[in-house]
Nucleic acid binder design. Structure first.
Lengths: 332, 332
DNA sequence: TTGTATGCGTTATCAT
DNA sequence: ATGATAACGCATACAA
């Protein structure tokens, strides 16, 4: 089932059939009609690979997120995908699973598939196939995270501002010991948020006890472990600040298991908002990004790069959403 | 940067270079070494499109989920992806967003990309491009859901058993009025679970009041709306059964907004388990599937179909996980 | 406007 | 074991 079959049935040459089907050049109304009918009757569908091979444009872009099971990245993916669809690009979504090796595997796949461009929420030192993407001159955009030493346009959140909002909020409530559940230093957001935490603690004159700082991996189990460690300290924190939503989930469970109550016994603020956090009892105070906007903008930025338009990095603001997990105004 | 460049640098013909790079036929150790070195030096990466065009095997499979932002489908995707990787297939993940039009858009994309096979969690009546996939004879597997009138191997959960477990559990606790928050009838799991609910209610002699049955769309807002309706009835239910996790989330929020407490004032059981449900206060009683296993098995089934091996549909059991949202043994 | 012929990068066939 | 060459399905330059 190729374009030859369509051309034969329509009684025209493959050239004419091709022109009609790709909707480009000049064709007669008569030919147009006959080709369309023939294609319809045969259920013909052009071979995107052959088309791309010939025209050096695949109309496909790769999107590599760190963890699809993290609602934050699922939202990014959703936003990016919708934006791509609006420009009739298909998105190939891949999942690095917070694993540098899998990141390389999928970058490799994108490269061999000859996608028109790649969006990635990167991790690691920027070795491996990120350099290969650069060498291949495949248009590249970072989303949420960046990697030092890469001159790549990016769409990120203002992590420093977000952390400052959270710490200021807790300080205003009278907390002096804020336990920090941080992300891995192998990820730019992990580093940025950690530094911002230290700066904010200093700025607001809070305890800068090293015992108050823990490190997780942006997954819930590590959040639980970090919380256990924090609460077991000699002078446990009165408030917890989790650097991402999954670790906040872990913290939630650990606090409950220790027979304490979020809001009443210990305050909790999470970075990243997920729908569910609104519905909890008590609802969670968060520093929110618009993940969907992050994805949309990253995709539009990528399409700009692909089409040779100027592309400048963007930093989106975060905003504090105060709910009862920090104010303690629970219904109890 | 093509295989010709590699061949030239290695001082061999393109034929030999191709043979070495695809690792297939007989090649001399000397040629192997020279080609590998040349490819390495040039940073050569084969063009998957050209390769697929010639060999009629793309080593890519399409996975179309109903909603990536639903953790259940994110887990399915993760399981499928890992299984594909183990057989060195790349997974193209697409998101139908619970929308039949988008489902068709991505099926179309898969077809034009000439993927080797497709896994889909389908919705709708099975018109549109599902038929086109069938006509194109592209290997197809359903996961989680099915569509009537399609003879397609599938991996699904035993919905009837799951609902029965939940209703039996609630009945044993003495509930006679169980409010049901159902899924859309356009989805097979929505229909199966609704029927199972009716059957289980009859079997256990519970109230079969029509007022106790509501319909949502597998998203949280609809769960909240359904809950509001149920609780506003003349004789409100003492227990709620939500047909998926997102609608359970909506129920959670609505109950809280009405000043009632899950577990103490009204029991809640959800179908689908998500990590977060364990960590809630109170933890949620669920009827769980192993979403990851669902994805893995669907992928292995698809690879069986692709390779012409026999492929039989599988139904995976669900299991009841009792937590405090139904027993009311909350810490309060 | 239409047809013919060439090439995209690769693998497969057929020689040698 | 290796080289030369055709073919995969399509778009396009060129000729008509």
């Amino acid at each position: 089932m190729t374009i030859r079959d369509v051309a034969a049935l329509a009684g025209v040459s493959v050239g004419t059939a091709s022109r009609v089907l790709s909707g480009n050049s000049a064709t007669s109304p008569a030919a147009r009609e006959r080709v369309r009918v023939a294609a319809e009757k045969l259920g013909y569908r052009p071979d995107a690979r052959a088309r791309a091979l010939r025209s050096t444009r695949s109309h496909a872009v790769g999107l590599l997120v760190s963890d699809v099971r993290n609602p934050f990245f699922a939202d990014i993916a959703h936003g990016a995908e919708q934006a791509a669809l609006a420009s009739s690009y298909v998105t190939l979504l891949a999942n690095a699973n917070e694993d540098t090796a899998q990141q390389d595997t999928y970058l490799e796949a994108f490269l061999t598939q000859r996608v028109d461009g790649i969006i990635v929420a990167p991790q690691g030192e920027g070795g491996g196939n990120l350099r290969a993407v650069e060498r291949a001159r495949t248009p590249l955009v970072f989303v949420d995270r960046t990697v030092d030493g890469f001159d790549v346009p990016s769409v990120t959140a203002d992590n420093a501002q977000g952390i400052e909002l959270a710490v200021a909020h807790l300080a205003a409530l009278g907390h002096t010991r804020v336990g920090y559940i941080g992300g891995p230093s192998s990820v730019s957001t992990g580093r940025a948020r950690h530094e911002a935490y230290l700066a904010a603690v200093a700025r607001h004159g809070l305890d800068d006890d090293a015992e108050l700082v823990t490190v997780g991996d942006f997954r819930s189990a590590s959040g639980a472990a970090a919380t256990a460690k924090l609460l077991a300290g000699r002078r446990p924190p009165t408030a917890l600040l989790a650097a991402d939503s999954l670790m906040a989930v872990g913290a939630l469970g650990e606090v409950r298991r220790q027979g304490r109550r979020i809001g009443a016994d210990v305050a909790l603020v999470a970075l990243d908002d997920i729908e569910l956090f609104r519905e909890l009892d008590p609802p969670l105070t968060v520093v929110a990004h618009d993940a969907r906007a992050l994805g949309e903008r990253a995709m539009r930025l990528l399409l700009d790069v692909i089409d040779g338009r100027p592309a400048a990095s963007q930093v989106l603001p975060m905003r504090l959403v105060v709910r009862e997990s920090s104010t303690g105004r629970s219904g109890r």
